[in-house]
Structures are given as C-alpha cells and as structure tokens.
C-alpha cells in the first residue's frame, strides 16, 4: 500500500506536485493518469526516495521507502527506461542491482527470461530500442520479487505485443495481492489495464475513483447509429438529456441514451437500424474534459486537425 499525505514538490517557483493525498491499495492495478508534466514522474520519484518532498510524506506499507530494510525486495520501480549505464550489458546491470540485496543469479536469469530479453542480455544497453529499455526496466523492477510495483509509463515505446504483455503482467501481479501503481498519459491504455484510477493534472489530484466510475460517471454515453430513416429516429429519440446529431446521410450520434434504449425505441417504431456502436473513445474525451483546465501545454495543432472532420460532417 502506498500512502501520500500532503505530498508537495516545488522546483524553484514551479510547483510540480501540490499537496496531493492518495492511497494505492494492494491487490489491484491503480492507474496514475495525467497529461505530460502533470507531476506523475515527480510523485513516483518521491515515493522511491529519489526526490525529497518539499513537504508532506509518502510511505510504502507504512514506512518511507528509504527506511525499508531491503528496499528492492519491497518495492520495484521502473522510473525511467534509461536509468541504466549505456555502456553496460543488460545482464551485468541486473547482476549489479541484484548484488546489493544478495539476490541470486538465478533470479537475474529468470527476470531476463520473463521479460523476453534473453537474446540481447549480453549486449550494451546503449544500443537498445526504447521498447527493449522498457523491458529491462521492468526486469529490474521485478528483480527483488517486490510486494509493490511502480511503473512509470511502462508501455511507452513498446510494440503491440509488448503492450499486451505489460497489461497482462500488471493484472497478474495485482491478482497475487501486490500493490501495482502504473502511470500513463493515455486514457485508453488505463481503461483496459487499471482497476482504479487516480487522475492528476498540474500537480493536483483531479479524480480518485474506480475506473468504471470514471468511465461511466463522468463521461457521457455516446452511440453511433446507422439507419435508413435518420429523421424519423431522431424524432423518436429526442428527449430529456438526449441529443442526437446527424453526422452523415445515414449516420447518427446519440448522446445520453444507452444502446439498449436506442434499439428498444427503434424496434417499437419499426425503424431498421444496421449499426449500433457504443463509442468507447468517450473515455479519452472524458479524460480530456477532466484535464482540459489542467493541461500545461495546449496544442494548437490538435484543434486545427480536428476542424476539417467536423466541418465535413456538417
């Protein structure tokens, strides 16, 4: 269990983390979601005792990380895929890490095997791709078979197979009763990986809730509907809290009514529909909505690129 109380980090006149409180429970995957520069990495470095909090405390299983008797056996962390000397081989890096805690060589071979690094373990880390670096970082995090696993942006740079692997790995670790805390700036990744979500923006916690609550509670349900009688269906569905937008000749986007309700209304009035797609992308939008006031760097290109799509629909 990780507990942060009033955790604050100030760099010069910039507050990276502003008095956050949160608890990461054991036995589930807790996602730490926030845009770049929101304070995710700083918070994780403070958990690992690498950055000293300006004020507040953070403990792992009730004790600050630096006071653990065998830190690597309690907490494993991937903070930065490049936290390795580039001229050393992956195997020697892990061997040196393992030596600090008398972790046997067999465990080094095991984590190399587990993370799929066997073929490159004797090669210099400097030549690794970002994905291989991530795998090495995960191998290092798992070295001490820790009860708490902290992974900062673990899927960054991984190929699709690697992304699925990390997803299954963290779920498996949580199912064993471990505390799993992983950060990402991708809502879609969190939606399929995390059980619980802590959303951070500009150093403040914006939301701390089970993933389902964040998905359904905050986001609105949107459904794409294709029919030959869009006008008729639009009239049928219109009502309190429901908005329907005609996007193409036969394409509607319905907000505020679940697919079942749409299908029921269509069936009752004998309107044929031939597509009914719940839009999971609304997660991303819910996240955008959550963070739009908290994003530090706004990008003009995003809105510019989105504009033609919208005008095309109108």
């Amino acid at each position: 269990m990780i507990e942060a109380r009033g955790l604050t980090k100030v760099y010069g006149n910039k507050t990276a983390v502003a008095g956050v409180n949160f608890t990461v429970e054991a036995g589930r995957v807790t996602g730490f979601l926030g845009p770049n520069g929101a304070g995710k990495s700083t918070t994780m470095r403070m958990i690992m005792g690498l950055d000293r909090p300006t004020s507040g405390t953070v403990t792992v299983n009730g004790t600050p990380f630096a006071r653990h008797a065998a830190p690597l056996r309690d907490v494993g962390a991937l903070l930065d895929a490049k936290a390795v000397h580039t001229s050393r081989s992956a195997y020697n890096h892990l061997l040196a890490m393992a030596a600090t805690h008398s972790i046997p060589k067999k465990r080094v071979h095991d984590v190399i095997e587990m993370t799929g690094l066997a073929d490159v373990a004797k090669k210099k880390v400097g030549g690794f791709s970002l994905g291989m670096g991530q795998r090495l970082g995960i191998a290092a995090a798992l070295l001490g078979d820790p009860q708490t696993v902290i992974l900062d942006e673990p899927v960054n740079g991984l190929d699709p197979e690697g992304v699925v692997w990390v997803r299954n790995l963290v779920k498996y670790l949580a199912s064993e009763g471990r505390t799993v805390f992983l950060s990402s700036h991708l809502m879609s990744e969190m939606a399929v990986t995390a059980d619980h979500l802590i959303v951070i923006g500009r150093g403040r916690i914006i939301a701390d809730a089970p993933i389902q609550d964040i998905i359904s509670g905050k986001g609105q349900i949107r459904t794409r509907v294709r029919t030959d009688q869009p006008d008729q269906l639009m009239r049928l569905l219109a009502g309190d809290g429901v908005s329907v937008e005609l996007q193409d000749n036969d394409l509607l986007e319905v907000t505020g009514l679940d697919p079942r309700g749409i299908a029921r209304a269509a069936l009752d009035s004998r309107v044929m529909i031939y597509e009914l797609t719940p839009l999971q992308a609304s997660l991303e939008e819910a996240y955008m909505e959550l963070t739009k006031d908290e994003v530090e760097y706004h990008s003009l290109i995003t809105t510019g690129a989105a504009a033609p799509v919208q005008t095309g629909g109108n």
Partner: peptide, 16 residues
C-alpha cells in the same frame, strides 16, 4: 483475500 504467506508487506530477504 490475498493468499496469506506469499505477500506480507515486509521484506523476505537480505537488504543492502
């Protein structure tokens, strides 16, 4: 309901 014994929250081996 974590299986007892596997994970206790305290370290199970030598430290640095």
């Amino acid at each position: 309901d974590v299986p007892a014994g596997t994970m206790s929250g305290t370290s199970t081996g030598p430290g640095p």
